[in-house]
């Protein structure tokens, strides 16, 4: 599903990570500064590796040896950022449909209804992002990423900016997403409890290196 073997020098910090994942949810675990966000940004194409390859769903999206670098917008990925990043000039419904419009996909009312129900967005559709709570924003961001029909969903600490109560509010949605949405995910977090609940596979990162790889039990 996803194969990564990359090197990147960022100032003093060097990142060298190799892993392959087949699981439904790959948890990228590590302390802050371990290189998690840089790694996920390379998978998204927002950051270009100095050396190495990235293969998503059989397609080589990065291969420095042969000069391949597929731009982000052609990678067909979904990305949920810690800070939601909803478009402030569009309402929730327009935010949700943005990816479908940009990818020139035909309207899929069935999928849209399913996602809206899955994430309980029905009551929010007419609102502007400025009028949403942090938890609501994050749910809309999840829906927006899903509706662009990605082949891989990247989540960079999607609960990181929320307080405990809001986290507990969103977690069940993420579990439902994992079990029902049928899109493989890479989930970045430094929270062991979160990853125990969600991940099916763990990549542990420390100071830019993969220190262990395996099932959720490596988190002990």
């Amino acid at each position: 599903m996803l194969r990564v073997d990359v090197e990147k020098q960022l100032g003093e910090f060097s990142l060298h990570a190799t892993f392959a994942s087949e699981g439904r949810v790959t948890g990228l675990f590590g302390a802050s500064g371990a290189g998690k966000t840089s790694l996920i940004n390379m998978i998204a194409g927002l950051l270009r590796p100095d050396r190495g390859t990235i293969v998503i769903d059989g397609e080589t999206v990065d291969d420095t040896a042969s000069g391949i670098h597929v731009p982000t917008w052609r990678r067909r990925i979904g990305y949920v950022f810690q800070d939601a990043r909803l478009f402030p000039h569009l309402n929730v419904a327009q935010n949700l449909d943005y990816g479908r419009r940009m990818n020139r996909l035909a309207a899929d009312p069935a999928q849209r209804t399913r996602v809206v129900e899955l994430l309980d967005l029905g009551a929010l559709l007419d609102r502007r992002p400025g009028k949403l709570s942090g938890g609501e924003r994050q749910r809309v961001a999840l829906g927006r990423a899903l509706l662009s029909k990605p082949r891989l969903l990247l989540l960079d600490e999607p609960l990181g900016a929320l307080d405990e109560a809001r986290k507990l509010e969103i977690l069940p949605y993420l579990v439902r997403l994992r079990d029902e949405a049928n899109v493989p995910m890479v989930y970045v977090s430094h929270d062991v409890a979160e990853l125990r609940q969600l991940a099916t596979q763990i990549v542990m990162l420390r100071q830019g290196r993969v220190t262990s790889f395996g099932g959720v039990k490596v988190l002990t």
Binding site: F81, R85, A145
Partner: peptide
Amino acid sequence: DRKLEQAAETLGAAPFKV
């Protein structure tokens, strides 16, 4: 915020569409 433009890119928008 350039992050919004990045978000648009991850949703499949080519640079001129962004």
